[in-house]
Simulated scan of single mutants.
Amino acid sequence: MASLVTHFATFLFLCPMGIRRLVSSFSLYLKNPCLYRSKTWYFSEPKWKNFDCYTLLIALPIASFSDLFIFLSFSGHPTHRFAFLQQSALVSLFWVLVILIICRENFDPFSIPENFIFIFAGILFLIEYMLMGEGITGLGGVVYDLLGGLTLVCAACCLYLSIRPAVFFSEFLLSSGLVFKGTWALQTGLSLYTDTFALKGCDKIALSPAQGKTDVKCDLDEDRLRGIALMNLLFIGHAIVVLIVSLVLFGLLCHHRNLRSVEASGPLLAQLESDSMLMQAFPEFEIE
């Protein structure tokens, strides 16, 4: 149950963050593509609109303390017991990342270079990738490998943005990757840690006390292969949905921007057309 809660909390953290980054980066890029530059966090005015960032500032230490409490009270295999300690430390590092972003925004922005924050975020994603799915084999290992691939994409984008912050495609991959990572984390929690959404012919993920390994128990090898194929298909489905959502958001923002441009230029165009008609009707008043 703790793992299901962890995956659901990851979904709640990453999806809104990714969607907000998509909307903010799209808006900034459409204003002037030539002057676009990615930001570690897209703060907005008034301050209360940045509640998602300050929510992370409060929620992340609570999540870290929860993992630490499970580590202290967990009496299972040492491999899985220390996994909660590692997760607690990783969440604490992401909390430090949020603190750095907020400090840079509220104090001297030159005291903490923006590229340093991107590098720090990239390193954290790499650490998360190395710890992800540790001790999980079989069908569960395949699912976590897919989640690890998304983590690597986020890490690569952060490291590249630290060097080339003006590359919009990297920002698009990072923001979409966060949304994708959030939805796939939820899918992982539902498919591997619940009986209701478990794969056909397979039980939810279980611990092997003797070996300290975790795997999804399937009745037949065919059920395991079918489960792997189904999870790969679901992964492609998640990718298509995230891509469609990203393109729809970009199209809506483009349409909204075009409407504002038309509203701004409409009266001016009407005045120009009126002046042109007057010049044609009374050519003798034309200034030479």
Rank of each mutant, 00 (worst) to 15 (best):
R226E: 09
L139Q: 04
G141C: 11
A185I: 15
E288S: 05
F250V: 07
C254W: 05
A89I: 14
M277Q: 09
I127R: 01
Q211S: 15
C218P: 10
I205W: 07
L278F: 10
S92Y: 08
Q87L: 10
V96G: 12
Q187R: 13
V262D: 08
P33V: 04
A59H: 00
I287Q: 14
A239I: 12
M279W: 13
V241Y: 14
I287S: 04
G201R: 14
L85N: 10
L278T: 00
D215G: 03
F125M: 07
V98I: 15
L207D: 10
S162F: 01
G227W: 03
F125T: 00
Q280A: 13
C158P: 00
L30A: 10
F125Q: 08
H80I: 04
I119R: 13
G18Q: 02
D215Q: 02
G189D: 01
L28F: 01
E288R: 11
F65V: 13
E286F: 15
S170D: 10
K39H: 05
A166Y: 11
W48E: 13
Y36T: 11
L186D: 06
V96Q: 05
S162L: 02
L192C: 10
C34E: 09
M132D: 14
P33S: 02
L152G: 06
F94C: 04
S162R: 01
L147E: 04
D219M: 13
A264R: 08
S24G: 02
A83W: 08
I123A: 07
C154R: 09
G227A: 06
K204M: 10
I119N: 10
L126P: 04
T55R: 11
L186N: 04
G138M: 00
P209G: 06
T151P: 06
Y54K: 06
R37E: 12
Y144T: 15
W41F: 09
D219N: 13
Y193R: 07
E288G: 09
G141Q: 05
L68N: 14
I117G: 05
A156K: 03
K181A: 12
P78H: 02
C158K: 02
F169V: 07
E171K: 12
N232V: 09
L253A: 06
A2M: 07
G237K: 07
F168M: 05
L225S: 08
G122P: 05
Q271Y: 13
E105G: 12
R81P: 03
L259E: 05
T214S: 09
A89H: 03
V98N: 01
T40R: 08
S38D: 14
L207I: 10
L28Q: 05
D203K: 03
F172E: 00
I119D: 14
H80P: 00
T194A: 07
K31N: 03
D203E: 11
L56Q: 06
G148T: 08
W41Y: 09
Q280T: 10
L161Y: 04
W41L: 01
L90K: 05
F8W: 06
Y129I: 11
P61L: 08
D145I: 10
I102W: 00
